[in-house]
Design a binder for these strands. Structure first.
Ligand code: FES
Ligand code: FES
Lengths: 147, 147
DNA sequence: CTGTTCTCCTATTATAATGATATGAAAGAT
DNA sequence: ATCTTTCATATCATTATAATAGGAGAACAG
């Protein structure tokens, strides 16, 4: 039960976007360099984040991506849902049809508890929290990254 | 981030084994019939549970599988670990080498929180809880299953 | 001792999900 | 016009999951 690289990379990119918010949009190329990722792959991720209304984009020179709302207003739950889908660890929690003995399933309550617990953690963390960690990190200031 | 069918099926099988504990071992065939699963696939799952010390097995006629400890002593965390691996949603939480910017990673704390939260839920649920749900279920008694 | 029931071991296959790359069109800025 | 960037879509490689298959070997009942 691991999260995808999309979510890993996407969350870090958003944390960086929190640094520049609301000063300027950051091009995918720049974010990709920072993380040592392929630009094309990150574009894919940012595209999903845009579809979810988490980032806005501007084309052309001095364009790029920026947070659609303030970092405090973007929870990790929204990010998770955008890049990873549901937080329910089994489909039947949300689509009862899938499992046969749904009504009397002794394990489903456990999976529901798990989902709620995950939602709790992700719902109480925002991009602002991530960005704050970058600001207070040892390397911050040494980076070539310009705000 | 979904759990595997191994865990889904395995957890339900263990809940059933809680019913017969400590009366008699139940053959894989019987458990598979109940869930409408292939015997061979369930054997595979039970084998993993045995390797983890969660069930014992007896060969030959009137053999089968039984819980290695009392249902109250088997947590869902142990079952999860046996069938699904670590509860950490990213490898770097437990293997720092994997991620590049490990030390200053702004997102890792979130994944650690997730792991702890998942551990909390799974650690506080036991097979006995699952078995109890079967006992108090509507269909219980109507089933052909004999203790 | 013989047949039956069952676990146990290992190999194989099918299918799906993930991770990643590639190509180029459309839009915006100067 | 030209450069920069998003955007849309297609493709490929790799891995993980799900499931099946065949048969060896233990336990036991008669
Ligand atoms: S209803 Fe889906 S695992 Fe029980
Ligand atoms: S250290 Fe692995 S996601 Fe940050």
């Amino acid at each position: 039960m691991e999260i995808s690289t999309k979510l890993r990379y996407g969350a870090r990119a958003l944390a960086e976007l929190g640094l520049t918010y609301p000063k300027r949009p950051v091009p995918a190329r720049e974010l990709a360099e920072q993380q040592g990722l392929s630009v094309k792959y990150l574009e894919h991720i940012l595209s999903a984040l845009k579809a979810a209304g988490i980032v806005n984009s501007k084309r052309g020179m001095s364009g790029g991506y920026e947070l659609a709302r303030s970092p405090e207003q973007i929870t990790m739950k929204a990010v998770f849902n955008a890049l990873e889908g549901s937080t329910a660890p089994v489909k039947c929690v949300e689509n009862p049809e899938i499992c046969s003995q749904y009504d009397d399933c002794p394990t489903r309550p456990v999976w529901e508890e798990l989902r709620d617990s995950i939602d709790g953690v992700l719902g109480s963390t925002t991009i602002a929290d991530l960005t704050e960690r970058i600001r207070s990190s040892a390397k911050y200031g040494k980076t070539t990254y310009q705000i």
